[in-house]
Design a protein around this nucleic acid. Sequence first.
DNA 1: CGGTCTCTTGACGGAGTTCAAAGCTAGTGG
DNA 2: CCACTAGCTTTGAACTCCGTCAAGAGACCG
Lengths: 191, 191
Amino acid sequence: MSAIFRSHLDKFIHLSDQEYQEILTFFEAHSVSKKEYLLQEGQVCKKHYFVLKGCLRKFFINEKGVEQTTEFAIENWWLTDHIAYERQLQSGFHIQAVEKADLLSISHSSQENLLQQHPKMERYFRYVYQRAFAASQMRIRYLYGLSREELYRHFNEHYPEFVQRVPQYLLASFLGFTPEYLSEIRSRNRS
Amino acid sequence: MSAIFRSHLDKFIHLSDQEYQEILTFFEAHSVSKKEYLLQEGQVCKKHYFVLKGCLRKFFINEKGVEQTTEFAIENWWLTDHIAYERQLQSGFHIQAVEKADLLSISHSSQENLLQQHPKMERYFRYVYQRAFAASQMRIRYLYGLSREELYRHFNEHYPEFVQRVPQYLLASFLGFTPEYLSEIRSRNRS
DNA sequence: CGGTCTCTTGACGGAGTTCAAAGCTAGTGG
DNA sequence: CCACTAGCTTTGAACTCCGTCAAGAGACCG
C-alpha cells in the first residue's frame, strides 16, 4: 500500500530504501468508510492527511446552515485545515470521506521532526505547498473570471472523470451554487 | 534597504551575516514608479518579486475586457504568476505597481541555485508557500461564504488601513464586483 | 484652470437563489 | 434478491442581488 506513497515521493525527490523506511515511521495509516469524519468544526486540527485511495472533502457550514465544500482531495493530494493545523487551533472546517478511503496521516509535531531530520522532505513539502498554492491561484482566477454556468462547463470539460465520481450536490457546493441551479444548467446543456 | 529583507528572513530562519551576504547575491533590486508594469500578459514570467516598500497588484483581463485584480502584495509579500514562473511559460496575468515601490527580484534559475546551495532557504520558501496557501484558503472560504456586500464589510473591518491605501475601483476589482456597486454599499453604510 | 481620472446616483434587466413539491435511485435489511 | 425508504435530482414560480448603461459631480495633475 505504501508503495503508492513511495512512487509519489519519487516524482519530487530521490530517496534510498532506508531513508524511505525511516520516513514512513513518522506516518500513520488509516482506512475510513464513506461519510466518516476526520475532523469536525471546533476540534483542534491534529493531522495532515495524504490520500492513497478514495476521496475526501473539506467544508464549512455557512450562516444559513448550508454546507460549502471548499476542497476535494483525491489520490496523491494532501488535505488539512492549514491554518488550524499549523497553529494547532480549533478548526472552522469539517473533513469527511466522500468515498471509503485509504490514508496516511502525520501529526504537526511529527511533521516538524520529519522536516528537521530529513531536509529532503523540506524540499518535498515546499513543492507540495507551491503546487497547492498555484492550483489555488488558478481557482481564484476562475471564480472571478467566469459565471457560475461557465464555471460548471469549464470544470466539466477539464475534469470529466471527477464530475462522474462525486454526487451533484457536492459538485454544486464546490462550485459555489445550488443543486437546483446545477440541475437547470444540465438540462439546458442537453437540449 | 536590504536590512528590511534581512529582518524578514530572521522571522523564519537563522542566518549568519556571511550567509545573508551570499544569499543577497542571488537577488536584484528594483525601484518602480506608480502604474509601471513588471509583467504583461503573453510575456514569459521571469521573476519572483518581493516587496520591500510599496504595493503591487496582479490582474487579468476578462472576456468583457474588464481588469480583474486577483492579488495585492504589500511590504514583506512575494508576488508572481506562480504557474508561469515555475514552468517559465507565457503568463495570463499582468503585474503592475499600485504605488511606487522598492522590490527585490529573483529569476527562476537563480532561485533553483539558491535552494540547492542554501537548504535553509528551502525551509524559508516552504514557509512562504505554506503561509500563502493558507491565506488563499481563507480567501476562498470568504468568497464562498459571504455575499459581495458582506465581503466588503468584512474586508473593511479587518484591513481598514489597506482600504484607505488603494483606490476604490481597485478594491472593487479585487473583491469581485463593480465600482458602482461598491459605491452603493458605501452609501448604505453611511445612512 | 482645463482635462482626465475617479466616484456617485438611478433605472432597468438578468443570472442565480429560495421555497415547495414531485420523481427518481441506490443502499439496506429482511 | 426484492421492497422500502432516505437521500438525491428535477421542475417551476417568485424574488433579490448585483451588473450594465448613462450621465453628472468631484478630485487631482500638469
